[in-house]
């Protein structure tokens, strides 16, 4: 995982609330045994028509969405299935951060483990982002600050250890493996 410090990008905006992980990547794409190439299946049922051709109306198919690394989504994005294929598909497509007023628990946890930054902001900031799609914003992880083009900046919460891992490009497995003695002691005690 590459370390994350600052993400600077235009935003793509999907204002719907409750975008579930079945929308982010439908189940029929989950019979894979790798995590590669899932960007092609991202939002498949919204992105493509029944004939398999791209739906020109869909926000991620519009020219201005190309190259956007930040997705602004409505409240409770990532609800539903625990499939980690959802953040894998978003990352493979090119996103590096998701901003919302609320992000579902398992999706948030999965995103953090893959270097997709979940950013939760207040209603007013979110309303501004939704009203200004394509705005160039900056997400600064070391200072946990989101900077808007008008110079405003807002803080966002990130769990301390997850932030450390993201900034240093380390995964939690290494940390857990170092707890081997404590785990063995627990197992002896708890039986």
């Amino acid at each position: 995982m590459d370390p994350i410090t600052v993400i600077r990008s235009r935003t793509a905006v999907m204002p719907s609330s409750n975008i579930d992980t079945d929308q982010i990547i439908p189940a029929r794409f989950l019979t894979t045994t790798t995590r590669d190439g899932l960007g092609a299946a991202l939002f498949a049922d919204w992105r493509y028509g029944a004939d398999g051709r791209p739906n020109p109306e869909f926000v991620l198919n519009r020219p201005e969405a190309q190259g956007c690394e930040i997705l602004v989504a409505g409240r409770n994005i990532g609800c539903g299935s625990s499939r980690e294929h959802a953040p894998w598909a978003l990352l493979d497509f090119g996103f590096r951060a998701v901003i919302s007023t609320e992000i579902a628990d398992i999706f948030r946890s999965n995103s953090l483990k893959n270097g997709l930054l979940p950013v939760v902001v207040d209603e007013a900031t979110h309303a501004w982002l939704v009203a200004n799609p394509g705005a160039e914003v900056e997400i600064d992880l070391p200072s946990t600050t989101l900077r808007l083009p008008d110079g405003r900046s807002v803080r966002f919460p990130v769990e301390a250890f997850a932030r450390y891992c993201l900034m240093n490009g380390v995964d939690e497995l290494g940390y857990l493996l170092k707890q081997a003695d404590a785990i063995a002691a627990y197992e002896r005690h708890a039986g």
Partner: peptide, 8 residues
């Protein structure tokens, strides 16, 4: 949990 955590 997600797949990364399945690995953990």
């Amino acid at each position: 949990i997600g797949t990364t955590e399945v690995g953990y």
